[in-house]
Design a protein around this nucleic acid. Structure first.
Lengths: 347, 347
DNA sequence: TTTACTAATTGAAACGGTTCAAATTTAATC
DNA sequence: GATTAAATTTGAACCGTTTCAATTAGTAAA
């Protein structure tokens, strides 16, 4: 069925399309009786004005930017989203959020849709599934469409605002070493996520820069969800030789740490007496949990604000702005899940 | 400064705008050298093709729907959003999320922006701040713009999919009464939220339908965040006469319940020995907390799915569909924060 | 019944692109 | 150098609205 246009309405109502347009836009110049009539015809024909055409002439509608997250329920990017929104609003922009579900094709479709629908620019948490697909990013560049990425992507020169995962994890390990720990594990994140890769790299880096020897068993493949931490925790500690305590674990993120703690609780292993734990992110629940979680605090506010700022500056600039690459440092906050270990190395 | 158009590019590049258009759309018919040249001119002029005009002719780009939440970090609507997205994707739609920050004007602006930008329809968690403003909803109706609301709004006849808050809270109270409780409180939600009002109504209803007498002190004004539950919990129980235990509390939502539990823990009051607690929502952390939270489980999946289904059916229908008003029931799930109380009423 | 306004309606020109048949160039073949 | 086919480029029509000067209808005063 062909789409109903303003012409169809005008024709069946027996008026000009200028009048119909006036009704659509609630202009007061149209006679009450005519208005009613046109409204009725609109309803009968189930006519829906095409927004795109409406704004083609005088573009005075609101400004907006987009955010492409990888998953809707990722607490990390949820926290960033809140900050992006705050800053965007402060500069008069509305934020639209979409999720790529970590799928390249989705990421591309969404970016297209944003660009095609008057969204002035976009912040992307890029999908990095082993193979990196960046054609669509090139396409955005060609269209001069402003965008900022929340993680670096090899092969494309674009604005990036991200956190220093290597340093964060490395600092955490060093902190544990300074506190006397000699047996340190890493419960790592989902495969292919660049955060996972970088955090493992930071973990190894700390070893190579200290007296401790690294071996692959120290990295336990885990994931990013509560149940990942719980399940891997149970699996790892079910038949664990208690003589090897105390140990320390740097977790991929806070919810994994919380899941792990839940597993340990169930196995009657004490935190931090037997196991010290450090999370990553510093989500709200981290400080409310009992015991309160020591963690690596991500500068969400700065991250979101900076990304949005660069994006909007680019949008509002007449000329092309220089490309920025900003990497922010995290900070360790110690609460109740870490402790100093005495000189003795076993038990 | 005037906006650069395809004409400007064509003119300065010395070609026709058809050729420029071909470059923009990566058509292979254009000569490599010409392409390079045009690309260079585009870059120099900082030309950004206007998406709206691009799709005016052949509208073959993707389909999308919008969701207007009240706050980005509201766990209730976050859970609904995930479900809406799932269903929308299954029907080939991308979901865009925006937040009104509980502000009428924002809600209106966002709805306008969606309608003006080729988003086919919208699901709204309506703002209800005492005064109800619904002009913009009428405007959407006039434009025949498809929308579904997640809470009923007085004065407008539109599609609604919501949950039965009155019944849910009432059921919770009755459950507690059946388990021997005689001293039951409600930690209620943020002022003006319709959920708050309905849940208080349900709380009172249960009293009026039982032998227990209601009085206003039983409803403690609280809020919707962890710290609300914590603070009101501390305030209420700081100097509480322990002779009055056991008591039971129905909380506005799970995070308030969790905050309250945290306060009780700090005051050395035992859950459920001294205080039984029931939350509302059944967020993921509710079952992971220790003790695991008894709560009223919201049918998020059904809620989101149904709202999206109605919306998309409306979008894809040629004629106007009958208005739907669906109210879903929640279900109590008992875990570790509630217990049966013996016949004795005090201590 | 004119006259003089005011209120309501019309219609053609944008808006900034896409499309595609026709025209023009370029390359290949004889 | 002429002929043909293939590769490029052009330009006018069109997409569905808004805009606004010009026109027409309606109304009150003279």
């Amino acid at each position: 069925m062909k789409k109903i246009t303003i012409n169809d309405v005008a024709k069946t109502a027996g008026v000009s399309k200028g009048t119909v347009s006036a009704v659509i836009n609630s202009r007061s110049t149209v006679n009450a009786k005519t208005r009613e009539h046109i409204l009725r015809v609109m309803k009968n024909l189930n006519y829906q004005p095409l927004g795109q055409a409406r704004n083609l002439r005088g573009q005075k509608i609101g400004k907006s930017i987009g955010l492409i997250m990888r998953e809707l329920d990722n607490p990390f990017y949820a926290a960033v989203a809140v900050e992006i929104k705050k800053y965007a609003n402060s500069r008069g922009y509305i934020l639209f959020i979409a999720s790529s579900e970590s799928d390249h094709q989705n990421e591309e479709n969404i970016a297209q849709l944003f660009a095609a629908n008057n969204v002035k620019g976009v912040i992307i948490a890029p999908v990095i599934n082993g193979t990196v697909e960046i054609e669509h990013l090139f396409h955005l560049k060609m269209l001069n469409y402003p965008f900022v990425m929340l993680e670096e992507v090899q092969g494309i020169l674009a604005n990036v605002v991200s956190i220093n995962n290597v340093k964060a994890t490395s600092d955490a390990v060093k902190f544990l070493i300074d506190n006397g720990h000699t047996h340190i594990l890493h419960f790592s994140g989902p495969k292919f996520a660049s955060h996972t890769v970088e955090r493992i790299k930071g973990f190894r880096k700390a070893f190579s820069e200290s007296h401790l020897a690294f071996h692959d068993d120290l990295v336990v493949c885990c994931g990013s969800h509560f149940h990942d931490g719980f399940e891997k925790g149970v699996a790892y500690f079910k038949n664990f030789d208690r003589k090897k305590f105390p140990i320390a674990i740097v977790c991929y993120n806070d919810v994994v740490a919380l899941g792990l703690m839940s597993a340990l609780h169930q196995l009657n292993i004490k935190v931090p007496e037997h196991v010290s734990i450090i999370g990553n992110d510093d989500i709200e629940f981290a400080r409310h949990w009992s015991p309160a979680l020591s963690t690596i605090s991500t500068p969400f506010e700065k991250l979101g604000r900076k990304a949005a700022e660069i994006l909007i500056n680019n949008i509002e600039s007449d000329r092309a702005l220089p490309i920025e690459n900003i990497i922010l440092d995290s900070k360790i906050v110690t609460r109740e899940t870490t402790r100093k270990v005495q000189g003795s190395r076993e038990t």
